[in-house]
Every structure is written in structure tokens, then in C-alpha cells.
């Protein structure tokens, strides 16, 4: 555990909590892509199956349980409790275009051809692109609520901090995992355009809106 890893995890947790609170307080999931939230629930579920097979630490177990719990709570909000406010008309990204290649790739490029390892690999690859339906929705509507941009900022920051964590671990532990690093790089790059808009607009008190 190093400072980048810890702040990365906390940033991830902050993102998840911000989204849940936003929906709860406003009683609305307008502007949120349910499809991205489904993908994140699939990511956590397929990655954290090792909860059933191995114990690493109390921290590790509690964070995994919290992430999974929050992911399903978000899905419950979007598709059941606040379904009337869900903007499905704008949530039109075709997720099969992500699931099929990512599924195929996890069978082809993995550390070990075993069910748990393939599912872990699948989750790493899927996470790297799971935000695309949300970004697609924003590009379609041309705007995002400020609170939604805070959610996206912390969600993007988390993987960027993990990149520093992996540099740290490579230097001080000689450890690296090429699958996680490449997927993490792709994931962070996908947020770059958003980071630019967040810094130049949202942090200056303006609403995030895209030119028509």
C-alpha cells in the first residue's frame, strides 16, 4: 500500500458515493447512463469473485463489499426506485460493441487460462471502457450537471492515481502487471478530453456544456 494506491481507492470511493448521493438527494438519475452503471456492476462482480476464495485483508474485503453494494444500489436507483427520471432515450450506446470484443480479448490475452483469472481479466478490460456509454450520453445531450462532472472527475482520477501506484510498485517492489497497466492507461486516456473540460470550465464555476 502506498499513497497513490490509497488516494486512488479513496477517489474511487468518493466517485461512487457522490453519484449515489446525487441521485438520492435530487430524487433523480437524469443525465446518468444506466448502461455504464450496469457495466460497472458487471466489472465489480466478475473481479471480486475472489471474495469467496481468498482473504487478503480487512481493508481489501470491506472495500470490495462496499464497491459491489454501491454498484447494485445505484442500479436499483436508476432502474427501479427513480426509473421515471432515467433518461433512457439518450442512453443509446450499444454495449454489445464493448462486451463482445472485451470478452474475446480476455480469453486471448490473460495470465492464466482459468475461470477466475479470465473473469478478472475480463473485468479489467471492461472497466477501461465502461464509462463510454456515459461519455456518449453527455456528448449527445451536449451538457452535464456539475455534480455529475465531479463524479466523472473522481472516477477518472482514481485510475490515473493507480498508474502512479504501478510506477511506485515497479520501482520499489519490482512488481508490474502488464494487463492492468495497459488497460489502466487506456482507461485514463479516455478521460483526458473530459479532464480538460473539467479544469477549464467546471473548476471556473461554469457548467459543462459542449459546443453544438
Amino acid at each position: 500500500m502506498n499513497v497513490f494506491r490509497l488516494t486512488g481507492d479513496l477517489s474511487h470511493l468518493a466517485a461512487i458515493i457522490i453519484l449515489l448521493l446525487k441521485i438520492w438527494k435530487t430524487r433523480s438519475c437524469a443525465g446518468i447512463s444506466g448502461k455504464s452503471q450496469i457495466l460497472f456492476a458487471v466489472v465489480f462482480t466478475s473481479r471480486y469473485l475472489d471474495l469467496l476464495t481468498s482473504f487478503i485483508s480487512l481493508y481489501n474485503t470491506s472495500m470490495k463489499v462496499i464497491y459491489i453494494g454501491c454498484a447494485y444500489a445505484t442500479l436499483y436507483f436508476v432502474y427501479m426506485k427513480f426509473k421515471a427520471t432515467y433518461d433512457g432515450n439518450h442512453d443509446t450506446f450499444r454495449v454489445e460493441f464493448l462486451l463482445v470484443p472485451v470478452g474475446g480479448l480476455s480469453f486471448l490475452v490473460n495470465h492464466d487460462f482459468s475461470p477466475l483469472e479470465i473473469l478478472w481479466t475480463f473485468s479489467i478490460y471492461l472497466e477501461s471502457v465502461a464509462i463510454l456509454p456515459q461519455l456518449f450520453m453527455i456528448s449527445k445531450t451536449g451538457e452535464a450537471e456539475t455534480i455529475t462532472t465531479h463524479y466523472l472527475f473522481f472516477l477518472g482520477l482514481y485510475r490515473a492515481l493507480y498508474l502512479f501506484n504501478w510506477i511506485w510498485r515497479f520501482y520499489f517492489e519490482g512488481f508490474f502487471d502488464m494487463i492492468a497497466i495497459v488497460a489502466g492507461l487506456v482507461q485514463t486516456i479516455l478521460y483526458c478530453d473530459f479532464f480538460y473540460l473539467y479544469i477549464t470550465k467546471v473548476l471556473k464555476g461554469k457548467k459543462l456544456s459542449l459546443p453544438a
Binding site: 487478503i56 464497491y67 501506484n165
Partner: peptide, 10 residues
């Protein structure tokens, strides 16, 4: 093996 270490990450 090296990759099991990654499982300690989230």
C-alpha cells in the same frame, strides 16, 4: 506467480 499480487488491488 507474479499476477496473484495484483489481486490485492481493487
Amino acid at each position: 506467480c507474479h499476477h496473484t499480487q495484483a489481486k490485492d488491488e481493487l
